[in-house]
Amino acid sequence: MEIRLSGVVNDSIVDGPGIRLTVFTQGCPHGCPGCHNLQTHDYQGGYIGDTDLILSALAENPLLDGVTLSGGEPLDQPLACKHIAHGAKNLRLNVWAYTGYLWEDIIKKGDSKILELLEQIDILVDGPFQTNQRSLELLFCGSKNQRIIDVKKSLKTKHIVLWEKEYK
């Protein structure tokens, strides 16, 4: 399946716990001032990749703990990201995703394709990067307004459950 990418980073240690393959999707509507991935904003930028090649890279690296969907805005390519997430789950890897959207807005919108993607995600870091709340002391977030959400528990309880650090 095609996916528009900015890039793929193997062996990342900053986009979630453990060693991860991070998929940077191309295209982002948020335009957060101070964003460190400005090159990912243009929806016509980057390049067309293949989700099966990403899944092959996941399968070939026995050191990986998981995959991270980042961006750009991965929720804007829900079918391709779901394909990657589902494949990662089949490999017994955990799946993290970063979004500039808020959890409440995602759920309220009720887009079936995005909700199906969420079902494949373990942890979602939500919210736009905000320069005035930037902190280098945060684990896996860029600004204090962002939340690290346990997706499975949040979907089950129908309210936001934040991630606890002992997650593997």
Rank of each mutant, 00 (worst) to 15 (best):
E2M: 08
I3Y: 06
R4H: 00
L5F: 08
S6R: 02
G7W: 04
G7C: 05
G7H: 06
V8Q: 09
D11L: 08
S12K: 08
I13P: 00
D15T: 01
D15H: 11
G16K: 09
G16N: 07
G18T: 10
G18H: 10
R20D: 12
R20K: 07
T22E: 10
V23L: 01
V23H: 00
V23T: 04
Q26N: 01
G27S: 05
C32G: 08
P33L: 13
G34T: 09
G34H: 04
G34A: 09
C35V: 03
T40M: 05
G45C: 08
G45Q: 12
G45I: 02
G45L: 07
G45D: 05
G46L: 04
I48F: 11
I48M: 14
G49L: 07
T51V: 12
D52K: 14
D52R: 14
D52I: 00
L53C: 08
I54T: 07
I54C: 09
I54R: 05
A57V: 01
L58W: 10
L58G: 08
E60F: 06
N61C: 12
P62L: 11
P62V: 11
L63R: 14
L64K: 05
L64E: 13
D65W: 10
V67Q: 06
T68G: 09
T68P: 03
L69N: 00
S70G: 05
G71L: 04
G71A: 10
G71Q: 10
G72R: 04
P74T: 02
P74E: 10
Q77M: 03
Q77R: 01
L79R: 12
A80W: 04
A80R: 00
C81R: 04
K82Q: 15
H83M: 02
H83W: 05
I84H: 04
I84E: 11
G87F: 05
A88N: 05
K89L: 02
K89A: 00
N90W: 04
L91F: 11
V95H: 03
V95A: 06
T99D: 04
T99C: 09
T99L: 08
G100P: 02
L102H: 13
D105F: 12
K113C: 11
E116G: 09
E116M: 13
L117I: 03
L118E: 03
L118R: 06
L118I: 09
Q120N: 15
I123V: 15
I123C: 11
D126M: 07
P128E: 14
P128H: 00
F129Y: 15
Q130W: 02
R134H: 15
R134T: 01
R134C: 01
R134P: 01
S135N: 11
E137P: 02
L138K: 09
L138M: 10
L139G: 00
L139W: 12
F140N: 07
F140I: 07
C141N: 01
C141H: 07
G142W: 07
G142Q: 11
G142L: 15
S143I: 00
S143G: 11
N145A: 09
I149K: 05
K153R: 14
K153E: 15
L155I: 12
K156T: 11
K158F: 11
K158C: 10
H159A: 13
H159M: 13
I160V: 15
V161Y: 09
V161W: 08
L162F: 11
W163V: 01
E166M: 06
K168P: 00
